[in-house]
Computed example of a mutant assay.
Amino acid sequence: MKWSEVSVHTTQEAVEAVSNILHEAGASGVVIEDPEILLREWDVSYGEIYQLSPSDYPQEGVIVKAYLPMNAHIAETVEEIKQKVLLLETFDIPIGRAEISLAEVHEEEWATAWKKYYKPVQISERITITPTWEEYVPSNKNELVIELDPGMAFGTGTHPTTVLCIRALEKYLNPRDRVIDVGCGSGILSIAAAKLGASSVLAMDLDEIAVKSTFLNSELNLVEDKISIKQNNLLEGINQPVEMIVSNILAEIIVRFTDDAFALLPRDGLFITSGIISQKQEDVKDALRRSGFEIIEVQELDDWVSIVAKKM
């Protein structure tokens, strides 16, 4: 079988939105080639760092790749992708060059070549993320391993925003806390919360693919008994109280439901947010404060920000 490799040359700020467009077009996963990773000063305290080749990355901007079956409608699909990418500018998301290219890939090449990007990586004191095909043995009894199949969608869980959220969960989640994950994507934050001791997690996403991915990944990690999964738009229609809400989505979306998050949390309840580029953090802080939250921690990693807010 032949596959079409669709490559979108864009900006780091647009990666999440472009990835979602490709998922909606039928991709089961994406590969993100960001040259920033070559310049990153890695925190080696959490484990081994794998050598990367500059030839695998663009000289500037970011390339997001997806693989779609080659068929008679691929040209129309690519044009639809292009139009949706161009529309991102109306949401104040810079798209950069926004160049889209198409290449033919044979199934046997695609099925194995992309796996070179994914290795086990320890992203916090307790949590290591590993692809399903890698054999990984925990280094100690307190280490928690999350297995992901990047082919299911939404990448490997090592994006800076995901790392920031998981570190915040590890720091602030109390045993038996009830958690809501808004915009669950692959379900990695829900899985992390369940493994860290949450009594229950409600995982929600508007994207049907995300809902399916979260279900499959929760089963893979044997936490499906703790995680309820629902297709839903943000917190609309949700009235069950919880001790913690976590959301790793765009800043422009977070500011829309800070009031709803405040209403669901008890006094001292926490709202962990990320997916926020540095330039947008003040917008999110302002929205949180207007809703009644107190900002208790801000962390940054590679120009991305996470904010932990408490209901007072």
Rank of each mutant, 00 (worst) to 15 (best):
residue 149 D to N: 15
residue 231 Q to H: 03
residue 126 R to W: 11
residue 200 S to Q: 13
residue 163 V to W: 05
residue 251 A to R: 02
residue 296 I to N: 09
residue 40 R to I: 01
residue 187 G to E: 04
residue 193 A to M: 11
residue 124 S to A: 05
residue 209 I to P: 00
residue 63 I to R: 01
residue 213 S to C: 15
residue 306 S to M: 07
residue 72 A to V: 13
residue 97 R to W: 10
residue 158 T to P: 08
residue 215 F to N: 08
residue 62 V to L: 01
residue 55 S to M: 09
residue 271 F to V: 10
residue 194 A to M: 10
residue 280 K to C: 02
residue 147 E to F: 13
residue 21 I to H: 11
residue 30 V to K: 00
residue 96 G to F: 05
residue 100 I to P: 10
residue 180 I to V: 14
residue 4 S to K: 14
residue 146 I to G: 07
residue 95 I to M: 09
residue 176 R to S: 14
residue 149 D to Y: 05
residue 143 E to F: 01
residue 311 K to I: 06
residue 175 P to M: 11
residue 188 I to G: 01
residue 275 G to D: 06
residue 51 Q to Y: 07
residue 1 M to F: 08
residue 252 E to K: 15
residue 103 A to G: 10
residue 110 W to C: 00
residue 284 V to K: 04
residue 36 E to F: 08
residue 288 L to M: 14
residue 52 L to S: 05
residue 73 H to Y: 14
residue 9 H to E: 08
residue 247 S to A: 15
residue 206 L to H: 11
residue 211 V to G: 12
residue 227 I to K: 08
residue 162 T to L: 03
residue 154 F to C: 05
residue 298 V to D: 02
residue 293 F to H: 00
residue 106 H to Y: 11
residue 54 P to C: 03
residue 38 L to P: 07
residue 255 V to S: 06
residue 225 D to L: 02
residue 156 T to K: 01
residue 24 E to W: 02
residue 137 V to S: 11
residue 8 V to H: 07
residue 244 M to W: 03
residue 236 E to C: 02
residue 93 I to D: 03
residue 205 D to M: 09
residue 36 E to M: 08
residue 10 T to A: 06
residue 231 Q to A: 13
residue 237 G to F: 05
residue 189 L to K: 06
residue 120 P to D: 07
residue 90 T to Q: 15
residue 257 F to C: 07
residue 197 G to V: 00
residue 83 Q to W: 09
residue 67 Y to S: 01
residue 2 K to D: 13
residue 269 G to W: 08
residue 180 I to C: 03
residue 255 V to K: 10
residue 78 V to P: 08
residue 117 Y to Q: 10
residue 21 I to P: 11
residue 51 Q to S: 13
residue 264 L to Y: 03
residue 129 I to F: 01
residue 306 S to F: 00
residue 49 I to Y: 10
residue 66 A to I: 00
residue 176 R to W: 09
residue 230 K to F: 10
residue 201 V to L: 04
residue 35 P to L: 03
residue 295 I to R: 03
residue 126 R to P: 11
residue 71 N to R: 02
residue 41 E to W: 00
residue 301 L to K: 14
residue 278 S to E: 13
residue 242 V to E: 05
residue 230 K to R: 15
residue 122 Q to G: 15
residue 264 L to W: 02
residue 259 D to I: 02
residue 284 V to E: 07
residue 231 Q to W: 02
residue 53 S to I: 00
residue 210 A to F: 08
residue 23 H to A: 12
residue 135 E to H: 12
residue 25 A to D: 05
residue 251 A to T: 01
residue 128 T to C: 14
residue 177 D to Y: 14
residue 85 V to A: 07
residue 292 G to C: 09
